[in-house]
Amino acid sequence: MTKRGTAQRILHDVKNRGLTAWLLSAILTAFYLVLYFTGLLDAPARAIGLDGKWTLYGLLYTLAVACGGVWVSFKYRHNRYQILRTAVVVFIQSTFAFSIPQLLKFFQQPEYYFSYFWPLKLEYLTPSYIFALPLPYVLYSFVGSLLLAPLLALVFGKRWYCSWVCGCGGLANTFGEPWRHLSNKSGAAWKFEQLAIHTVLGVALALTALLFVSWGFGNGNPQLARAAAQFQFFYGLVVASLLSGVVGVGLYPLGGTRLWCRFFCPMAAMLGLVQKLGRFRIAVKKNMCISCGLCSKYCEMGIDVRAYAQAGTSFTRASCVGCGLCAEVCPRGVLRLENRGALVRIQGH
């Protein structure tokens, strides 16, 4: 039952797919369409002394993460995991994902985002792009994407990236907090998720391979080079623009906050597979669940956590980004995030 008062009614409406939610979703979607496909935002950006629409977007994005972060830290002030995680996410967004690239640009360096890796940012292993950068950037990109990211996911789960570093996750867990419960929990959605996200991962891998081949042999084979370029353009349009921006954020108020992360992000797909082999798990206390459903409801990845909790089975799901909200909202303290899944599996208890 909604609280009394007009403000509360509107708040309920915007958080629960009411008219205001549709309106907000339309505004967000329109914003992304304008941002990606027109130059309309360049003028206001220059008017406030920025060099273009993308810097303006970075600024707005960082502000959204910071303001949302303050709110979320207050809301979960009794939970140190949430406070730390939020502080780190806001810090990374405002430095590595915003001010440092701007500074690099200012000092005539490449505009490099140290908080992003391949295959989320496909350029960072696209030979024609990355090999044009100075050697330290090349090393960072290769080591970070191929070694560091999977290794950390093996030890801590994909949460180290998806919930502590990544800007997409950062926005979802701060600005997107009011809509986290809208994720679809059905078995059908889970099936679609597995199909969709691994398809995108497959396409991203294929494209990267093609770009390497084209970089190596494209000179003598203009048809190959053209095909690779077309494929790259198409991927950029569909995956990077439409799915991550327009769908990913535009539909926050209708489909929940992690649509991109859950269904389409190739990085999440890759780290998810690593996570299944690694140490991260959600431990479930036996026989203590009361099946209330708060854990499932507030899982932004649409995992039916309650199914595991009421069965008393500890689990690792590839999609889990380890935001820790299931454990936070559980009124009986049944759930705990742990980095000891593999140990337990080996020891058998």
Binding site: G293, K297, Q310
Partner: peptide, 18 residues
Amino acid sequence: TALMYAYMDRLTLRDMEP
């Protein structure tokens, strides 16, 4: 056990179905 969460708007009646 989830009745109270429905009353407080944290769950819908449908959410209470395990």
